[in-house]
């Protein structure tokens, strides 16, 4: 701890953003529930909630950025932010773990058992006579009808290369930030989120292809469920990560970061690496094996 001010704890003043956020969540959750129950106005209530939450996120971050640029955060606050971000990413990992767990359980247990594996001969014989378990499958009831599997080659492979490349570009950007090379920093950071948005675009194209040409849908039994939920939630996270990187890019252009104070950049980079690692898991377990 350096100057005298740094020896004192930093406690932020009151903030209205949390309750604004709670109000936004209230509208969002109530709205989407009403909508799912078949009442269309719920959709607009949900949108209002989303708008309030976006308003809250921008306002809250504007406060934090103003305080950060105003040098109000000492080393201890910086460390709190770092730890908070890492634990948040851990919670995200566990959210994906639930869906990976569902994939592994269905693939290695539920489906073989439906096929009579282990001591489940009568499950197969009585309930699903004649069903032979395989993977990928849409189950003994062939829910969703005939479908074609999404193979690992082609688009998924290109997407893998894109995401892995974006991990390299953001690392180059980080090194450039530390070395004080602003031009390289902004170029490679821009390259990162552009790659991210290209990934999303290709992913959307792949979904259209799956729905139209392969008859592979969210409703295609357990394979379709796990495929679309895992890749879908991953895609949402890539979208969020790319938007975060875009915001960071604007802050770079404004000259917000110095070589030893750029936590926001690092947090975005950590998040980006996280979505990258999840993709590698997806590519191996959902597309490839």
């Amino acid at each position: 701890m350096g100057s005298h001010a740094d020896d004192r704890y930093y406690v932020p003043h009151e903030s209205h953003w949390p309750v604004v956020g709670s109000a936004g969540l209230l509208f969002m959750m109530v709205g989407v529930s009403i909508w799912l129950n078949g009442s269309d106005p719920g959709f607009w209530v949900m949108l209002a909630g989303v708008a309030i939450v976006i308003f809250m996120v921008t306002g809250w971050f504007r406060d934090v950025i103003t305080e950060s640029v105003g040098s109000m955060y000492n080393a201890q606050v910086d460390k709190s932010f770092r730890m908070g971000m890492l634990w948040f990413i851990f919670s995200e990992v566990m959210f994906f773990a639930a869906f990976f767990g569902a994939l592994f359980y269905a693939r290695n247990m539920a489906v073989p058992w439906l096929g009579g594996d282990s001591n489940n001969f009568f499950t197969n014989f009585v309930l699903w006579s004649g069903y032979e378990s395989t993977w990928p499958t849409n189950g003994p009831g062939e829910v969703g009808g005939d479908f074609t599997v999404m193979g690992p080659m082609g688009l998924p492979l290109i997407n893998t290369v894109i995401l892995l490349t974006s991990s390299v570009t953001i690392t180059i950007a980080h090194h450039a930030l530390i070395a004080g090379k602003r031009g390289i920093l902004s170029t490679f950071l821009a390259a990162t989120f552009i790659l991210g948005f290209i990934f999303i675009g290709l992913q959307a194209y792949e979904y259209v292809h799956a729905y139209n040409d392969l008859n592979l849908r969210l409703t295609t039994g357990i394979y379709g469920s796990t495929f679309f939920m895992l890749t879908g939630f991953h895609g949402l996270h890539v979208t969020l990560g790319a938007i975060i990187l875009l915001v960071i890019w604007f802050r770079v252009l404004k000259g917000h970061f110095s070589k030893d104070k750029h936590f926001a950049f690092e947090a975005a980079a950590w998040y980006w690496h996280f979505v990258d690692v999840v993709w590698v898991g997806l590519y191996i377990f959902v597309y490839w094996l």
């Binding site: 569902a102 359980y105 269905a106 247990m109 539920a110 489906v111 058992w113 439906l114 309930l127 699903w128 499958t137 849409n138 189950g139 003994p140 009831g141 829910v143 969703g144 849908r217 969210l218 409703t219 039994g221 357990i222 394979y223 379709g224 469920s225 796990t226 679309f228 939920m229």
Partner: peptide, 13 residues
């Protein structure tokens, strides 16, 4: 949304 996570007919459980 018609997923089959917990539907045996679709291969879920």
């Amino acid at each position: 949304f018609g997923t089959s996570f917990f539907l045996a007919a679709g291969g879920g459980d």
